[in-house]
């Protein structure tokens, strides 16, 4: 840098000085090139880390343990028992809980087939539960330690691979039990919001952009011209308003003031205004 300063004050390097100057500048240039490259790589690595982190949590080992040892219920494997034996097991083991009567009322045990009864015995009597779970990398690299730890803490537990993302996860509703929880209700909610947003935002957004691009320039009326400028600046500013502000606008106008009309889909109506400004920008 000092050589650059001298340059600007009228000093022109020559010979060795010139070579030194050029070398310095080129080294500096190379260093900075690598700095710029690094920042790009860091940004990309973060993206990879984010995705890997999500995948890491999606798959891995789980330890499943039965609340009741199946051997204490029956000396034969549950799957091989007959229907009468299964019903007997249910009646023996579920006397205390009210769910026996509830299940019977839903559909009498005598009317159910063997596979169904096995399932009920497994969930209601044996009661499988996940006692521990590990992320993917842990599961791969520490599997010996995990086996040892589980063997010590939960001798009856079985360790197996589990994918938290599955068809069941997408299709089942919410649940307080993590292993049975799904996102079907949440997906429906998102789809409704998208649907209602699109109904509102697409016509209005595209309409506004067509108006601004094709019609607003034609007008000779000074009043209209001013309105057009206002609309344009306004749309640019709207796109920068944080979505939480639209959120409380939705809360106060749609949810509270219009509660009688929109009670059903109130939260769906929250969002169209958010998308509105942005759609206009992208369409225009």
């Amino acid at each position: 840098m000092s050589i650059n300063m001298q340059q600007s004050s009228g000093y022109l390097p020559d010979g060795d000085d010139l070579q030194k100057n050029i070398n310095n500048r080129q080294t500096q240039g190379n260093i900075w090139r690598n700095v710029f490259l690094t920042s790009l790589i860091v940004a990309l690595v973060i993206l990879v880390v984010l995705i890997v982190d999500i995948l890491n949590g999606s798959f891995g080992l789980i330890a499943i343990q039965n609340k009741v040892d199946p051997a204490t219920i029956s000396d034969q494997p549950i799957e091989t028992l007959s229907e009468e034996e299964l019903v007997a097991i249910l009646e023996r083991n579920m006397q205390t809980s009210g769910s026996l009567r509830r299940l019977d009322r839903e559909e009498p045990f005598t009317a159910r087939d063997q596979a169904e009864l096995v399932e009920i015995v497994e969930t209601e009597v044996i009661g499988q539960e996940i006692v521990a779970s590990w992320k993917f990398f842990d599961s791969v690299f520490n599997s010996a330690a995990i086996q040892a730890q589980i063997a010590e803490k939960y001798p009856r537990a079985i360790i197996e691979w589990h994918s938290w993302i599955s068809w069941d996860f997408v299709t089942s509703p919410m649940s307080a039990i993590p292993s049975q929880a799904g996102i079907s209700t949440a997906i429906m909610g998102s789809l409704w919001v998208i649907f209602i947003t699109m109904i509102f935002a697409v016509p209005v957004g595209i309409g506004a952009s067509i108006y601004l691009e094709e019609y607003s320039a034609d007008t000779k009326n000074p009043m209209l011209q001013r309105i057009n400028t206002i609309i344009e600046t306004n749309i640019n500013n709207l796109a920068g308003v944080p979505s939480i502000i639209y959120g409380i606008l939705g809360l106060s106008i749609f949810v509270i003031a219009l509660a009688p009309i929109t009670s059903g889909v109130a939260f769906g109506v929250n969002d169209p205004t958010t998308a509105n400004g942005r759609t206009i920008i992208s369409a225009g």
Partner: peptide, 11 residues
């Protein structure tokens, strides 16, 4: 179309 533009102002 003008009304569409005005909606943004109303927002």
């Amino acid at each position: 179309l003008f009304v569409c533009g005005v909606v943004s102002v109303l927002t």
